[in-house]
């Protein structure tokens, strides 16, 4: 309704715009942080050497029955460890890196990604081949695991705190804005009520305006989030062992570090804010109409 649309007061919307922009940005960062940290930690873990090497004494060209027996036992006991009998070419390369060139018959080497107790593995292997040598991986994980756990925990806590803060402040901000709009239009509402007219149309107009402001504010926050994530990724590039930067933006966009569901949430956020703003304004106006103060 044109008259009512003109008649409705428009309190300054920049505090709501600015507030929702910053809160959306903060909320986006809070959601991104644990995902980013998880991906980064996973990336580092992939880089670590967690291979256990089991060396069997040389026994001719063909694999002995002991070797086959050990291979079957390892596969049956630790199927996720992927025990592999290395070919001679790889054995030669490994031995070359350990010592001077190997002149004698080549030993048999098994590798497996084993993260359990070394005693369990040793017992199993020695039961089958007592003369086997077990070479554990370098103790990188032992040192890094507590650090990574702490990093994950810290990221979760920071995300939770920021997310909760944003989740609490957003309704408060929307309520304040809705109350401001309702109070600014109290007289308009009183005039309509005194004429015996429905105030629903006025409420819809006010709620629509609020929804538009909330949508734009949140959208600005999400748009601001993109360069922020790119800058953070770029700054952590050496730590994450990402390829070198080419041009203004990193070659690996932050998308690769965040799951698609999170990007879907970011896209939905302006719509959710608009919906929340619409509902809040409508409810506050209706309440004010019932209990004019």
């Amino acid at each position: 309704m044109t008259y009512l649309s003109h008649a409705a007061e428009r309190p300054a919307s920049w505090p709501l715009l600015l507030g929702l922009c910053l809160l959306s940005w903060l909320f986006g960062l809070a959601l991104s942080l644990p995902c980013g940290v998880e991906r980064a930690v996973h990336h580092w873990e992939e880089q670590l050497n967690d291979q256990v090497v089991i060396a069997l004494p040389a026994a001719g060209d063909e694999p002995s029955s002991q070797t086959n027996k050990l291979s079957q036992a390892l596969t049956a006991t630790f199927p996720k460890a992927h025990p592999t009998l290395l070919p001679d070419r790889d054995v030669t390369r490994i031995l070359a890196s350990w010592s001077t060139p190997w002149d004698g018959p080549l030993p048999r080497l098994f590798t497996l990604s084993y993260h359990g107790e070394m005693n369990t593995l040793t017992t199993l292997v020695h039961n089958i081949t007592p003369e086997a040598i077990i070479v554990p991986p370098p103790p990188q994980m032992a040192k890094l695991a507590p650090l990574m756990a702490a990093l994950r925990k810290a990221a979760s806590h920071v995300a939770l705190a920021a997310g909760l803060a944003a989740a609490l402040v957003v309704p408060a901000l929307l309520y304040l804005a809705a109350r401001t709009i309702a109070l600014a239009n109290r007289q308009q509402q009183a005039v309509l009520l005194s004429m015996g007219r429905a105030v629903t149309t006025l409420h819809h107009i006010l709620a629509r305006r609020m929804a538009l402001t909330a949508f734009l504010g949140s959208l600005a926050g999400i748009i601001l989030l993109l360069p922020s994530l790119m800058l953070i990724t770029s700054a952590l590039r050496p730590l994450l062992r990402l390829p070198a930067t080419t041009g203004l933006f990193p070659t690996v966009p932050p998308q690769s570090f965040l799951p698609p569901m999170l990007w879907g949430t970011f896209c939905l956020m302006p719509f959710l804010m608009a919906l929340a703003g619409w509902g809040m304004t409508y409810l506050v106006c209706v309440k004010q109409g019932r209990h004019p103060s």
Partner: peptide
């Protein structure tokens, strides 16, 4: 009397008919 302050006097008077 209360009026809608953002509307002109003519628009305020016309409001009941508009409604």
């Amino acid at each position: 009397p209360l009026f809608m302050d953002r509307l002109t006097i003519a628009d305020n008077i016309a409001l009941p008919l508009e409604m």
